[in-house]
Amino acid sequence: PWQGRSIASSKLRMLEFSAFLEQPQDPETFNKHLFVHIGQSNPSYSDAYLESVDIRQIYDKFPEKKGGLKDLFDKGPHNAFFLVKFWADLSVNLQDDSSFFYGVSSQYESSENMIITSSTKVCSFGKQVVEKVETEYARFENGRYVFRIHRSPLCEYMINFIHKLKHLPEKYMMNSVLENFTILQVVTNRDTLETLLCIAYVFEVSTSEHGAQHHIYRLVKD
């Protein structure tokens, strides 16, 4: 039931995704602030399908050269392509403190045992500025294979970006900057090079009192 209703292709399903800041309070406790978060969901067949977005509407927000979003989509499979609109929660006090930890955690599951590679490209005006590539092996748990990228440190570029964004006095200014800031995550089967998931992330700043929010869309070409 999760196919078409959550971030899942026929080969891989995203279970959880978060980017966070941990601030120690004392030696035994810390505060965890979620900038963005996709929690566990359990869609059923009665739930509506995700809305779709024509991928051509966002091509220029992501790398367009050889191997870019268009090439990836043309290669397929099309059911692996998603757009996530995040409303990021920046309601946190940031200080330059080396004891702070900025991290990203994500989890995936599959019915297949494989080795996955996750490429995360941060883009400014559609051009890649930094890329992180991670390789994960499967763990067999409860009848399926689970992949965990646990507490992957956020890169310096992203930490500086968040700090600079926070220094802007008005939310509309932050959103203006975020209009040209995107992230493209491509999860691939390391051995077959098959695209398992391709997720395009775009951002605004949350105005909610309930923290980070998101919408998920299927990317299609009508």
């Binding site: 809305e51 977005v53 966002i58 091509y59 409303w87 909610s208 309930h210 919408h215």
Partner: peptide, 24 residues
């Protein structure tokens, strides 16, 4: 690209794209 430099607000995107969920 045909949509280059076009503000996101002027692109063909679902209405929900601009509606922040208010769920907890």
């Amino acid at each position: 690209s045909a949509v280059e430099q076009v503000p996101m607000r002027k692109r063909q995107l679902p209405a929900s794209f601009w509606e922040e969920p208010k769920l907890t």
